[in-house]
């Protein structure tokens, strides 16, 4: 964010008219947007609005029907494998292996991302230290409290120091306190220059984003900073903005 060189000014995500059609159903309808380095980008929308489909295309997991996009400098249609290697991903449901110890999860994901043995162990130790989890390195993941698992899953998702990390409802069902601790990790990562792309149903979390987009019926209905969105819709909170958009007819 402090560096104004040409390289850093290039958007980390660039998407133009991205579309996905399943049979007769248009899940994502020609969306266009950019996300800049170090931004915390909130990707909001109702259940079924097309967020997951859009996110799968951005992560190189699903081929777009039309339109184009690049993520971390790679084309999502032509270079999906390179996209995958250069991003981090964390989902609410599946993120860590319950039956492996804490350090084994780091070892596994580090290996998948092609890190060297030494890098993995150094990074693991550093991350455990930062989280205050050093004593838990040999603990089975399944016996950790849910709030701890979320934090570990986030660290594992960025073990290969990706330019961008995708977080799919990382705080779903997490209690208010653990949610806030999780967002502090997000902030720390963003300050280190990792771009954050996050979905959430908690509207207070939308306020923590640099910019948010709100999807409805496959299209992006609004995209701006939380402050500007509230101004535009004459709303006191992002909650109100969300309701107004959800109830408006296109």
């Amino acid at each position: 964010m402090n560096n104004n060189s040409g390289e850093n000014m290039k958007p980390v995500i660039f998407v133009e008219n991205l579309t996905k059609v399943f049979g007769k159903f248009t899940a994502v309808n020609s969306i266009s947007f950019e996300v800049n380095k170090g931004e915390i980008f909130g990707f909001l929308g109702a259940n079924g609005a097309g967020k997951t489909t859009a996110m799968k295309m951005l992560c190189g997991l699903l081929k777009p029907t039309s339109g184009r996009g690049s993520v971390a400098g790679f084309d999502i249609t032509r270079e999906p494998e390179r996209v995958k290697a250069n991003i981090g991903y964390m989902s609410q449901r599946f993120s860590l292996y319950d039956d492996l110890r804490v350090w084994e999860n780091f070892r596994l994901f580090g290996g998948i991302y092609g890190l060297k043995e030494r890098e993995i162990s150094q990074t693991t130790e550093r991350m455990l230290h930062e989280l205050g989890f050093t004593q838990e390195r040999n603990t089975m993941v399944k016996s950790l409290p849910a709030g701890w698992k979320q934090k570990l899953a986030f660290s594992v998702a960025i073990i290969h120091n990706p330019g961008i990390v995708f977080l799919d409802e990382p705080t779903g069902g997490v209690d208010p306190k653990a949610r806030r601790q999780f967002w502090e990790l997000i902030y720390d990562a963003a300050e280190r220059g990792i771009t954050i792309f996050v979905t959430t149903h908690y509207m207070d979390e939308a306020e923590y984003c640099s910019r948010v987009s709100i999807m409805k019926d496959g299209a992006i209905d609004a995209l701006d900073t939380p402050a500007n969105l509230k101004l535009k819709y004459g709303a006191k909170s992002m909650d109100e903005v969300f309701y107004q958009l959800a109830n408006s007819k296109r």
Binding site: G45, N47, H201
Partner: peptide
């Protein structure tokens, strides 16, 4: 936890 993962409008 009936509304975990449910969007604000559906929650309401």
């Amino acid at each position: 936890e009936p509304t975990t993962g449910v969007d604000p409008v559906s929650r309401r």
